[in-house]
Structure formats: structure tokens, C-alpha cells
């Protein structure tokens, strides 16, 4: 899977403490999601873009990722301007385009992209395992962290198995169609996937028991806050608080 594509790198954000990044990402995302005024949404968008540029991820890869996300946004653009009541800007055939609708669609576009760029910059620059580790250090419910951790670890194994199964049915001349045979074949694939998952889950637990596991997960890696982490926390904190404060006081309204 190419999913952890952005996690390797040596930029400032790649080296930053994932705990700090997680906290910043959560608070910043929540605040941006709550912004109602267009000027603030713009500000957040620009800030996120700047933040993302410091992660030094190749521009084309970012664009590709954002393009996928914006397919959803595009779908909104195809509906909201017509379906939102308000001041009619112009008529497009039998439909009316309202200025409120365009504003709403635009604001969603800004907010969505702002949050996603920030999360690309802050979260996708860490590996999944270090995120799981940080969650443990951030005192997230240990069972949840363990679940997260194991899911990620064995996702690849199951994906490999799935790929092999698909290859195996292809070799025997299977090609997907809209019919019962296809659906039943997929159902068996899924069923087999669940059986394999279940059995492997049992074996993994047994293997852990063999190594004396008694429910405790030991954290060997400890993170240390560096100066750069504190700078990141302060900058993100200031921006987040500033946005929240201005939203609360309704300043650019």
C-alpha cells in the first residue's frame, strides 16, 4: 500500500514530536470546522497551505491527494448553489443559482481543504506506528490503542492474502460482472478474509502468550520534547486560539 507515502522525510514537521502534532491537528481542525466567517476561513486556508509547504512533500503528490478529496467537494458544488434558497444570482435553465448557495459551497471548500492540508502536514508526516505510540503516551484508552496498533500491523498481511486470493480467482477465469456468481464469489472472498483474520488473530494471541504476555504493553520508545516541538506547539496554539477568539467575538463579520 502506498498509504504511508508521506511519512518518510526529514523536514521540520517530519522530525517534530508526533504527540504535539496530534494535539495541534485535533484542536486546529475543530476550530477551523467551526469557523463561520469567510475571512477567517480564508486565513485558515492560507495558514494550512503555508504549514503544508513546510512539510516538503512533493507538490504533485499533494495535488493528487487533494484532487481525490475535492471530488467530494465538487459534488457539493453541483448541488448546493441550486438547492440553497436565497438571493437569486442568475437562472441556469429551470434552476436558480443563489448567492448564498455559492457562498456556502465556497466556505465548505475552504474549510475542507484547510483542515485536510493541515492534517496532511501534521499527521501524514508520521508513521502510523509512531502515531499509535503517541496515542498511548497521550493516555488514550489502552485497549483502543492496542486495537489500532494490531489492526494496522495485520492490515498488510490480510491485504496480501486478499491480493493472492484475487489473483487465484483471476487465474481461473473470473471477471467481475453484475450477477449472482460475482456477488457470491466476492462474498466467499470476504468470508475467507474474515476466517483468515479470525484464525490469525487467535495465533497471534497464542504467540504472545508463549512469550509471557499478560495484558501489559510495554512502551520502549519514549518521546522527548525538543525546542522545535515547543515552537510548533506555540505557533499552532497561537493561530488556533486567534482563530477561535476572532470567531467567538465575531470580529470580521
Amino acid at each position: 500500500m502506498t498509504c504511508e507515502a508521506f511519512s518518510s522525510g526529514s523536514s521540520y514537521l517530519h522530525r517534530a514530536d508526533p504527540r504535539v502534532k496530534i494535539l495541534c491537528a485535533i484542536f486546529y481542525s475543530v476550530v477551523v470546522a467551526c469557523l463561520s466567517g469567510m475571512p477567517l476561513q480564508y486565513a485558515a486556508f492560507i495558514f494550512s497551505a503555508i504549514l503544508l509547504s513546510t512539510a516538503r512533500i512533493p507538490f504533485r503528490m499533494i495535488l493528487r491527494r487533494l484532487a481525490v478529496v475535492n471530488v467530494f467537494v465538487l459534488a457539493l458544488w453541483l448541488v448546493i448553489p441550486f438547492s440553497t434558497p436565497g438571493h437569486v444570482l442568475f437562472h441556469a435553465g429551470p434552476l436558480d443559482v443563489s448567492s448564498e448557495g455559492i457562498c456556502a459551497a465556497f466556505s465548505i471548500t475552504l474549510k475542507c481543504n484547510a483542515i485536510i492540508m493541515a492534517n496532511l502536514a501534521l499527521l501524514s508526516t508520521s508513521s502510523m506506528f509512531s502515531l499509535a505510540h503517541s496515542l498511548a503516551h497521550l493516555k488514550v484508552h489502552s485497549k483502543l490503542v492496542q486495537l489500532f496498533f494490531f489492526t494496522w500491523r495485520y492490515l498488510h498481511v490480510l491485504e496480501d492474502e486478499h491480493r493472492r486470493m484475487v489473483q487465484a480467482i483471476r487465474i481461473r477465469g473470473f471477471s467481475p460482472r453484475t450477477d449472482m456468481l460475482t456477488y457470491r464469489t466476492y462474498a466467499y472472498l470476504v468470508g475467507l478474509l474474515f476466517v483468515r483474520g479470525y484464525e490469525r488473530g487467535e495465533r497471534v494471541y497464542k504467540a504472545m502468550l508463549c512469550r509471557g504476555f499478560d495484558g501489559t504493553f510495554w512502551l520502549l520508545h519514549h518521546f522527548h520534547l525538543h525546542g522545535r516541538d515547543i515552537i510548533l506547539a506555540v505557533v499552532m496554539g497561537l493561530v488556533t486560539v486567534a482563530l477561535a477568539g476572532m470567531e467567538w467575538m465575531g470580529i470580521p463579520h
Binding site: 500491523r153 490469525r200 504472545m208 509471557g212 499478560d214 501489559t216 510495554w218 520502549l220
Partner: peptide, 24 residues
């Protein structure tokens, strides 16, 4: 175990090898 993937679940090799001793 027959399948090493059943046994290796940690993010790094060193953690995996240290898992047993830690439990001891």
C-alpha cells in the same frame, strides 16, 4: 510458530525481541 507473521507484531525488530524479556 510456523508463520513468522503470527509472532512478529511490533513496529520494530528490537521491540519484538525485547517483548518476551519484558514480560518476564
Amino acid at each position: 510458530f510456523q508463520d513468522p507473521d503470527d509472532q512478529l507484531f511490533c513496529p520494530t525488530v528490537i521491540e519484538d525481541v525485547a517483548f518476551g524479556p519484558l514480560n518476564m
